[in-house]
Simulated scan of single mutants.
Amino acid sequence: AALPTLNKAGSVTFISAVSAQIAAPGVAGIGAINGMLLTVAPILAVELKPLRVNVVAPGVIDTPWWDFLPDEQRRAVFAEYAGKTPVGRIGRAEDVAEAIAFLVSNGFMT
């Protein structure tokens, strides 16, 4: 519905999540949606060109979403995930914002 109003020199950036790539109880619905975003973004990039289409799937990010875990358990989960990443830490909201800002501002990335 918004397509006619979008600037053809602009971009659309979707936000996905690691739930698209993990098998964890309780994430079937959100995992399916996030998996769809990872699948549809490159297709839309071709179909809607020259409009740029991107998707950011940042992994584990320290946000209030994790507040359902007690502090000690959250720290343990974050430490486990951090140990599996090349940078040795989990992400911050600022990391995701910087990635999105780059994609929106770079006229070549799609």
Score class of each variant (00 low, 15 high):
Ala82Asn: 07
Ala23Leu: 04
Asn34Ser: 08
Ile30Cys: 14
Leu37Ala: 04
Ala32Pro: 00
Gly26Asn: 14
Thr5Gly: 15
Leu103His: 05
Pro64Glu: 13
Ala24Gly: 00
Arg92Met: 09
Ala93Asp: 07
Pro42Gln: 08
Val60Ile: 14
Ala41Arg: 02
Pro42Glu: 12
Ala76Ser: 09
Gly107Pro: 03
Pro42Lys: 09
Leu69Gln: 15
Val12His: 10
Ile30Gly: 05
Ala82Cys: 11
Phe78Leu: 03
Gly91Trp: 11
Lys8Ser: 12
Leu48Asp: 02
Pro25Cys: 00
Val55Trp: 05
Val27His: 05
Ile100Cys: 12
Val60Phe: 10
Val56Lys: 07
Ser11Tyr: 12
Gly35Asp: 07
Ala97Arg: 11
Pro64Met: 02
Gly107Lys: 13
Phe108Trp: 15
Val18Asp: 02
Ala32His: 08
Val18Leu: 13
Leu103Met: 13
Asn34Phe: 04
Leu51Phe: 11
Pro42Phe: 09
Pro4Val: 12
Gly31Cys: 02
Val56Ile: 15
Ile90Val: 14
Thr5Ser: 14
Val77Leu: 14
Glu72Thr: 12
Ile100Leu: 14
Gly31Glu: 02
Arg74Glu: 04
Ala79Arg: 03
Trp66Met: 14
Arg75Trp: 00
Ile22Trp: 06
Leu103Tyr: 09
Ala2Gln: 10
Ile61Cys: 06
Gln73Cys: 00
Pro50Gln: 04
Ala57Trp: 03
Ala24Ile: 03
Glu80Trp: 04
Ala32Ser: 13
Ala79Met: 01
